[in-house]
């Protein structure tokens, strides 16, 4: 997100990690308690509006025992990895290729902007016609979401690298290859990582959406069938897992990576959290 970095915000007091975790766990505990209370006999919320935490847990164990839960998770993650791998590699590669020449970049910018604006779920009807109701459509949608987001951000990232850096490498006898490798790629890395991080977040969402429409298995199918068959515990379980997997990808992979890159090569001193 384009929130400008600043050195003027209040200094953050250092506190031990366990303390942060404990404080952040409190709202989850409160929400769980409220949910439990609302669905208990005292709260009186009927089961067809919201089942109790216990009912959701029982259902989860049942689905786990049947094996459907694990296969749904694995199929969603598998498609995500496939689509993301293609989308990110092509997006970064083409973004750098196009971004190195200023005239070419200026030419591609309006196209990148337009396709970035319609990337993702808007392609679902076309994907279904082209690839049928199958994993191909789903993978195409993730690829599409990730590719256009990453391409656009890489292109922007390359263009923010000051030309003086490239010129000084050339003046000092470096080749164009050195310029790309030593200045453009490291300089564009913060932008590339923004693209990858947003791409993972929205790629995952498009995956769920595409699964709802175009495929027979996965977490998207779990929640959508839950809605059709009125199995609310399925929906809540799916919702919980969708959030958990997305957050894990973001916090364990991309947040540290982004923080490192911005510290190392970025133009601002501190990384956004």
């Amino acid at each position: 997100m384009a929130i400008p970095a600043t050195s003027l915000s209040r200094p953050v007091p250092r506190q031990p990690a366990w303390q942060t975790t404990a404080i952040r766990a409190v709202p989850f505990a409160v929400a769980l308690a409220a949910w439990w209370l609302a669905t208990s006999p005292w709260g009186g919320l009927p089961r067809y509006v919201l089942p109790s935490p216990g009912a959701v847990l029982d259902n989860a164990l049942e689905l786990y025992a049947k094996g459907t839960l694990v296969s749904a998770i694995l199929s969603s993650i598998g498609r995500m990895l496939l689509g993301f791998a293609f989308g990110s590699v092509l997006g970064v590669g083409l973004g750098i290729l196009v971004g190195t020449n200023r005239a070419v970049a200026a030419f591609f910018m309006p196209l990148a902007r337009f396709f970035q604006a319609v990337a993702g779920v808007i392609w679902i009807p076309l994907a279904v016609l082209w690839f049928g109701l199958s994993w191909k459509s789903v993978t195409f949608i993730i690829f599409n979401t990730v590719f256009f987001l990453v391409f656009y951000n890489t292109l922007m990232g390359v263009q923010t690298v000051p030309r003086t850096l490239a010129n000084s490498i050339l003046t000092l006898g470096g080749s164009r290859w050195d310029v790309i490798w030593e200045a453009l790629i490291p300089g564009a890395l913060p932008g590339i990582l923004v693209g990858l991080r947003v791409g993972v977040g929205y790629g995952w969402r498009s995956l769920i959406a595409a699964e709802i429409i175009a495929s027979g298995q996965g977490l998207g199918v779990l929640i959508w069938e839950g809605q059709r068959l009125f199995r609310i515990p399925d929906i809540i379980l799916g919702l919980f897992l969708i959030g958990l997997i997305s957050l894990t990808m973001d916090k364990l992979v991309f947040a540290p990576l982004q923080a490192r890159t911005i510290e190392r090569w970025g133009t601002s001193a501190r990384a956004p959290q």
């Binding site: 769920i208 919702l239 959030g243």
Partner: peptide
């Protein structure tokens, strides 16, 4: 809640 996303909630919103 942001990670869950709007699509995760949609079935529940419908119900």
């Amino acid at each position: 809640l942001q990670a869950v996303g709007e699509i995760g909630w949609l079935p529940l919103f419908i119900i």
